[in-house]
Design a protein around this nucleic acid. Sequence first.
DNA 1: TCTCGTTTGTGGACCGAGTCCAACAATTGC
DNA 2: GCAATTGTTGGACTCGGTCCACAAACGAGA
Lengths: 238, 238
Amino acid sequence: MPDPEPKRAGRPRGSSRAMLEEASAELFLEQTYAGTTIFQITCRAGVSRATFFNYFTAKSDLLWVDVDAGLATLPAALDQCAAAAGPAEAVDAVERALLQVSAAFGPGQVPWALTQYELMGTTGELEASALSRFMAQVTLVTRFVGARGGSTDQLSSRAFAMAVLGAAAAAAGVWARAGVTRGALEPYVGAAIAPVCMGYRSLHARGRTQGRIEQHDCDPAITGESSEERQPLRGGSQ
Amino acid sequence: MPDPEPKRAGRPRGSSRAMLEEASAELFLEQTYAGTTIFQITCRAGVSRATFFNYFTAKSDLLWVDVDAGLATLPAALDQCAAAAGPAEAVDAVERALLQVSAAFGPGQVPWALTQYELMGTTGELEASALSRFMAQVTLVTRFVGARGGSTDQLSSRAFAMAVLGAAAAAAGVWARAGVTRGALEPYVGAAIAPVCMGYRSLHARGRTQGRIEQHDCDPAITGESSEERQPLRGGSQ
DNA sequence: TCTCGTTTGTGGACCGAGTCCAACAATTGC
DNA sequence: GCAATTGTTGGACTCGGTCCACAAACGAGA
């Protein structure tokens, strides 16, 4: 039933991620993600409801299985560009890495998260799981670019990361909704991120003169956070 | 207690959003957002727990009160640029509108959502509420730009919207974490979105030649969605 | 004054995702 | 057979959120 494992003490697993994924895929087709409870998934897989959480952190993880696998290749794709030394080269590297990752998605591999999006309404689960994944990539790209900027310009690193990944995400959304004639994902991503990369490449190519001016404006903000100011300032109230 | 209202049939309200906001602000300061239950908030405001939902859709709405108020001004700010006729002018208009909206946030007005972010861990509530708000602005900007592109190029409209709003959001995050010397939000947003706007302005200035090539690549995708292909393709499984 | 229609509040039942844990089950190695 | 290890289970619980029967409060009209 589950994958054979090397012999070692302890009870063997009676289930697997793949089994739960398969059960959930059937149920999502039959009755959508939102119409499917964890109890139903585990019943179909023949395990208890509590066992689900031995395999997945949350129900919404089921929406992102292929995306997570794809995104897991992004660090390695960036590492192939480890030789990128300056900020403009880093922008190039990110562009190439994103294209490489998106090349793994053919027309028939639309992730559940994208197909279920409009069926789900505003349950919040998809949004929460989407943004946490998105921000993990933002952190990755921000670090990659920041490490090659030779500066403390966290603002532009982070802004670039969010902009380029946002554009890529927009491309994925348009691609998913495009229907049978959609083709591969990569051209969509390429078209979407090109202007962003051009903008930031150009920013860095203008180089030290204007870049320094911008940092001067923001420098008081970047020098560090003050813990006492971190306490809320009735920011949510009048 | 609550605001006086014009006479009309029906029971008067015994509470208000402002009362609940105030109660919640006190509790968030004392014990964080995550450490505060709706029951505690309503007890402090002197109403029943179920009444909370007569005033707020969700607990997380409390995190976004000022942001929602600020974002509510974005449509009007865009409308002031109604004369923007072409796509490059639309990019300018979006840039100006975002700067205008961000100008409303001084150094002492950091929204709860941004101050509570790192205290909250990965509960999902903040992410869900953040992304739903973000996507509402994406839709707004996409429509604004798309209506001035004179084209059906949904990909570049949407990619621009997500990129520029992503960059703006990154700026807000850096600003929030910057501490007492942060100053106003607007310069951060300005620095963050300038390269994005430049990239897309340049894309449109190159105009019909290259723009058409890109659309040709994506055209099969854009011509419309096929309902039958909208059904999931085991995208979340192997 | 009484009745009716309307609006708002309440308590409680319920749902589902997610957490936690004691008890039990299954396996290996000695 | 026993100890150690790992996995499963059922059930109790939390909390955000939904729903509803009933009650409270009001203005308008008879």
